[in-house]
Design a protein around this nucleic acid. Sequence first.
DNA 1: AAACCGAGCTGGAACGTTCCAGAAGGCGAG
DNA 2: CTCGCCTTCTGGAACGTTCCAGCTCGGTTT
Lengths: 327, 327
Amino acid sequence: MDIAAAAGVSKSLVSLALRGDEGVSDATRARILGVADELGYRSNTLARGLVQGRTMLLGVLLTDLANPYHTEVVAGVEEAADAEGFTALLAHGRNDRRRLEQQLDALLQLSVDGVVVISSWLDPRVLTEAARRAPVVMVGRPAEHPTGVDTVANDDAAGATAAVEHLAGLGHRRIAHIAGSRRPAARARREGYLAAMRRAGLAAEAAVHTIGDDTGRRAAAAAELLEAAAPTAVFAVNDLAALAVLDRAHVLGVPVPDRLSVVGYDNTGLAETVRPRLTSVDQPRATMGRLAVTLLLERLGGRTADRREVLPPTLIPRASTGVAPAG
Amino acid sequence: MDIAAAAGVSKSLVSLALRGDEGVSDATRARILGVADELGYRSNTLARGLVQGRTMLLGVLLTDLANPYHTEVVAGVEEAADAEGFTALLAHGRNDRRRLEQQLDALLQLSVDGVVVISSWLDPRVLTEAARRAPVVMVGRPAEHPTGVDTVANDDAAGATAAVEHLAGLGHRRIAHIAGSRRPAARARREGYLAAMRRAGLAAEAAVHTIGDDTGRRAAAAAELLEAAAPTAVFAVNDLAALAVLDRAHVLGVPVPDRLSVVGYDNTGLAETVRPRLTSVDQPRATMGRLAVTLLLERLGGRTADRREVLPPTLIPRASTGVAPAG
DNA sequence: AAACCGAGCTGGAACGTTCCAGAAGGCGAG
DNA sequence: CTCGCCTTCTGGAACGTTCCAGCTCGGTTT
């Protein structure tokens, strides 16, 4: 450390002074800080991490940067990380499971103190294995709970129920559902929809159409659904699917919400952008991100039992839903 | 290194074997790899970085994760980084200049081998200072070129010209512009618009309304513009502003594109989502990201002269523009 | 005056790698 | 048989920090 030489003290004392330790005289401290400033000194995270065994870095691994759902969770994670003195570093899987695993590996090799995984894509065994090297919290609904890993999810069944009850409360009976792929969250929403329809005495009216992830099939499913089931209301598995329905309704000349009500899920920025504004089920994303950090810190504090947190979503009514058309 | 003990060789040999060096006998290599696998060994980036003086990490600093413009640049950066054997780590400024600086600092302290800054927010002096510790490339249009830093930008004037020529070619004369804040890119687009209007002999018809960054003022500016200037076409500084115009037109019952044509800038996902699909100027974002990495590598290879790259944008015609209404 | 104390400082080990000089042993050429 | 060379392997230094045990020196207590 050249600061030591320049200030005429030992490197140990430089270290103490820079870290603000008590046992350094004011005069010496001032001199050391002065020299450090002059030399443009920046501490070296690598060296510190190596000797301390912790880096104050949190890794955030996400499947898809472009997905606004993910980025709001990230905001929550960052806020909490900042408050605890950690730096959040993001790694991006770009919708590719292999790459996701590589990025996870890269984070672990960097000796991050913990990892928040915002993705349902990783194999539970990969997560369990990762959790042996650093605490791992997964945000999202896993198909199968990975042992050694904490999870934070929203209550998809409750969200679906809220959507159905909102629509039923407006007098709708033919409430159809556009379901997602076989992913766990989508499945839970679908089951929640079916259960809520039963409870509302509308089991006979339930209609489910399943879509893929790509835009083309979304549009096709929307068209099919509107023509086959002739619903007065649609609960869609997510905002993008809801958008496809709005789009199709526009093409068919069906006015929304006068003749058709539509509810989305995730309350993405889109919901507030499209015309009409989309009623959508909101997950408390920022809260989920913050909670993930809390769970990580608990693990760092020594907790070993797995935790599985489920947070309640909220329905945000907007202009895409209205009272059911008469007849 | 416990692998060394378990395999009965020196730590040096373990290092050589794991890195695939030639001078290790096949039998010994197999034994070492076997032991490493069994012990679940992962190399330690901190230690390697410390001794080698490079980490094979690229830092990507961005103002706003939620901005799809940024994320596509990131995709280009990641693609190129991957191809060169680097790992891209993202740090996020969350629309806060102070935080942006802190994150930049964190990246430098991590000893990343280079930084791609996707933001026009940082003080040029901060960037110049950072560039003394690691190569820095800025993607975006700086107000003032920071010395020691390479920049990659799109040609905003050319983009504005393309928009005006497209509209003029459709017979429009009263082409108004919704301008952005005082940020350099916005200013360049505005100047480009004015110059193109002059060249088209429409200087007298030019009308500029300026907006802020928030949604409310966007809507107000859109309303004001449509009512005051009564244009038949609007070139907006970005897609969000264009959206506000579409929205306002919808409220006023002005059909697009029959009585009003609208062109955006940035060609974000929104442009393909809204109805009608938005004509927009596309920046070659992925290419810009890849180019940024190329420039970083050149710096690592020893180049010291600053480079300033400007890439041509492309207008993507969609349904929001049509021939000017008669009369 | 001896013993103790605390404030202020130092030197060296440690962290997990890579790198470098060089050692050991086998083999072919002279 | 000796020399040199090649292959395979080793030991220790180095990277920039933190941590720990311990040093020195003036002042206070007994």
